[in-house]
Simulated scan of single mutants.
Amino acid sequence: MSCGCGTDHSDGKAIIDRLRVKGLADKPMKQSYQISCECQSEFTMATFSASCPQCGMVFGVTPCSQHALENIKPAGVNY
């Protein structure tokens, strides 16, 4: 589970922390997703960690969970 797949997938902060420790936060995902942020903005997420350009909300997903949009979780603004 070196990629972070043992992380609590419901906890956005734990996901982001694990991605950063493993050096995966800026790595590209197999596919990008259109994210609807809580601030009503939309943006394209192409890396395992990304932030909303309008409000700074950070979103993350582990490599083994990248196959589904619902696995992408918010971690907090400017987290």
Rank of each mutant, 00 (worst) to 15 (best):
Met1Ser: 12
Ser2Asp: 10
Ser2Ile: 08
Ser2Phe: 05
Ser2Lys: 09
Gly4Glu: 11
Cys5Glu: 11
Gly6His: 09
Gly6Cys: 05
Thr7Ala: 09
Asp8Trp: 01
His9Cys: 07
His9Phe: 09
Asp11Met: 07
Gly12Asp: 14
Lys13Ser: 04
Ile16Ala: 03
Ile16Gln: 00
Ile16Trp: 01
Asp17Pro: 00
Asp17Thr: 03
Asp17Trp: 00
Arg18Pro: 00
Arg18Cys: 05
Arg18Asn: 11
Leu19Tyr: 07
Leu19Trp: 05
Leu19Pro: 08
Leu19Ile: 06
Val21Lys: 15
Gly23Trp: 03
Gly23Ala: 03
Gly23Tyr: 02
Leu24Glu: 11
Ala25Leu: 05
Pro28Gly: 08
Met29Asp: 10
Gln31Ile: 10
Tyr33Pro: 06
Ile35Val: 13
Ser36Trp: 01
Cys37Ser: 13
Cys37Met: 13
Cys37Ile: 05
Cys37Thr: 09
Glu38Trp: 10
Glu38Ala: 14
Cys39Thr: 10
Cys39Glu: 14
Cys39Lys: 14
Gln40Arg: 09
Gln40Met: 10
Ser41Tyr: 12
Ser41Lys: 12
Ser41Arg: 09
Glu42Asp: 14
Phe43Met: 11
Phe43Ser: 08
Thr44Arg: 15
Thr44Gln: 15
Met45Ile: 07
Met45Val: 00
Ala46Ser: 15
Phe48Met: 11
Ser49Ile: 04
Ala50Asp: 11
Ser51Ala: 11
Cys52Met: 06
Cys52Ile: 07
Cys52Arg: 07
Pro53Asp: 14
Pro53Val: 11
Gly56Cys: 01
Gly56Met: 03
Met57Leu: 12
Met57Phe: 06
Val58Ile: 12
Val58Gln: 02
Phe59Thr: 01
Phe59Gly: 03
Gly60Trp: 05
Gly60Leu: 04
Val61Asn: 02
Thr62Phe: 02
Pro63Tyr: 02
Pro63His: 06
Cys64Ser: 13
Cys64Ala: 14
Cys64Arg: 08
Ser65Tyr: 10
Ser65Asn: 15
Gln66Glu: 15
Leu69Trp: 08
Leu69Gly: 03
Leu69Ala: 07
Glu70Thr: 12
Glu70Pro: 05
Asn71Gly: 08
Ile72Leu: 01
Ile72Tyr: 00
Lys73Met: 13
Pro74Trp: 01
Pro74Glu: 01
Ala75Met: 06
Gly76Asp: 10
Gly76Val: 01
Gly76Tyr: 01
Gly76Cys: 04
Val77Cys: 03
Asn78His: 07
Tyr79Pro: 09
Tyr79Asn: 12
